[in-house]
């Protein structure tokens, strides 16, 4: 026993070192899982309050309030445009069918939020917003700014939420070339925060430099047709059946201040259908 104690005392420093290294490795590996505890992200109470305080100090109060009101107005108008578009499409179908019921439920709603923390230098970037579960924010909701898409909510606390930025190498978004049916997968490859790549574009797809890339609408996170970026040029691909387009992103990630979170009221219904698919496949 005494020998054991002497051994521990003699090599105590190494034990401490090994303990901290192992603990760091455990934290490192566990942080790669998407579903992290809210306490281990920038959406926790301490981090968010520090960032919130810093934002309050650095923000220009008048400009912020004016900006927020404009954003709210913009959000409601955008929501109205999207719903009118969908109603119009519905009307066209109904007119064809000689149906009289032109009413349709509003599908998308927007919640305005301020960005209280944002990073662009890591391979996996996140941002923190000052809206949480109390405002109806749930993981999986899409986030946009006035120029284009920004990311997807990853963890929602009561008053804050963490968003996986578009500038995150692990996150892909379903997009398409505007006015066409050519779908691709948008991915960021690190480095320049203004450049991303539209992958898996079919070989026969027609495109021109300057074409707009928009969301495909194949998820509940983003409605169809939200701006993402513009095509710069084609880059080399390892797959002969598909090619890759280099995209200049429209959102300015260096200067994100106010964003909008998209709520899809059909989300639960669509998700439950996906669950149904999984059950039947089993």
């Amino acid at each position: 026993m005494r020998n054991l104690l002497n051994f521990i005392i003699k090599y105590g420093t190494w034990f401490v070192f090994t303990f901290y290294v192992l603990l760091s490795c455990v934290l490192l590996v566990s942080s790669n899982a998407y579903q992290q505890s809210v306490y281990l992200t920038s959406a926790n109470v301490v981090s968010s309050s520090v960032y919130g305080a810093a934002t309050n100090v650095t923000g220009y109060f008048d400009l912020r309030s004016i900006n927020e009101s404009l954003q709210k107005r913009n959000a409601s108008l955008e929501s109205e445009v999207l719903n009118l578009k969908s109603q119009l499409a519905q009307c066209m179908v109904m007119l064809d069918n000689n149906s009289a019921d032109l009413r349709r439920e509003k599908r998308f709603d927007f919640v305005s939020a301020s960005v209280i923390n944002n990073s662009i230098r890591h391979p996996r970037n996140y941002l923190t917003i000052d809206r949480g579960r109390k405002d109806g924010i749930e993981p999986g909701m899409g986030v946009v700014d006035q120029n284009g898409i920004v990311g997807i909510v990853n963890v929602a606390g009561d008053n804050t939420a963490r968003v996986i930025s578009l500038l995150n190498e692990t996150q892909h978004f379903s997009v398409k070339l505007k006015g066409t049916l050519f779908i691709g997968s948008l991915a960021w490859r690190g480095g320049d925060p203004t450049i991303a790549y539209m992958e898996e574009v079919p070989r026969h797809a027609q495109y021109h430099a300057g074409d707009t890339v928009v969301t495909s609408g194949y998820s509940t996170a983003f409605p169809e047709g939200m701006q993402v970026g513009v095509v710069l040029n084609r880059v080399k691909s390892t797959d002969d059946n598909f090619f890759i387009l280099k995209i200049r992103l429209l959102s300015n990630f260096k200067g994100l201040s106010t964003v909008r979170i998209i709520k899809d009221i059909y989300r639960q219904e669509v998700d439950s259908l996906k669950t149904f698919d999984n059950i039947t496949e089993k």
């Binding site: 070192f17 760091s24 490192l28």
Partner: peptide, 18 residues
């Protein structure tokens, strides 16, 4: 790490730096 959403990255590097 807690503030930067890089859990474990700086902790491991700092311990090794020590």
């Amino acid at each position: 790490d807690l503030f930067s959403d890089t859990m474990g990255v700086n902790a491991l590097a700092c311990t090794l730096l020590g």
